[in-house]
Write a protein that binds this DNA or RNA. Structure first.
Length: 103
DNA sequence: CTAATGACATTTG
DNA sequence: ACAAATGCCATTA
């Protein structure tokens, strides 16, 4: 099964703790602009606890949504050491994980 | 195959 | 800064 969403999961698994990735960046890392499809994949998230889908946020630094409630997402991020204000990441750029872009 | 959906992004008012 | 409208891509019915 090498679907687009699986690519997202694999990429997400590469995200270390205490870091966050944006839908857009993920899509870009996959050489695509399907940030929407990325969100869709997370929503389905068949690999629920295996994939840190809660580390995925919007490109503007907002939390976005979450299947179990955005609040839960914020809580998890804070637990990882990320500072979150209402619905936005504080040191967003600092916690933003950059994917390795192969040449 | 066609239509509809969505945990988004960008532009315009 | 906020709200509304449009675009974009993959998945599912």
């Amino acid at each position: 099964m090498n679907s687009f969403n699986e690519r997202c999961y694999e990429l997400l698994k590469k995200v270390p703790k205490g870091k966050v990735a944006t839908y857009k960046e993920i899509a870009k890392a996959l050489k695509s602009k399907a940030y929407r499809a990325v969100g869709n994949a997370m929503n389905k998230n068949p690999y629920a606890p295996k994939v840190p889908c809660h580390r995925v946020i919007k490109s503007n630094g907002e939390i976005g949504g979450f299947a179990s409630g955005a609040k839960n997402k914020i809580k998890l991020l804070q637990k990882e050491g990320i500072k979150v204000r209402e619905n936005k990441i504080i040191d967003f750029d600092k916690h933003l994980f950059k994917f390795k872009t192969p040449v």
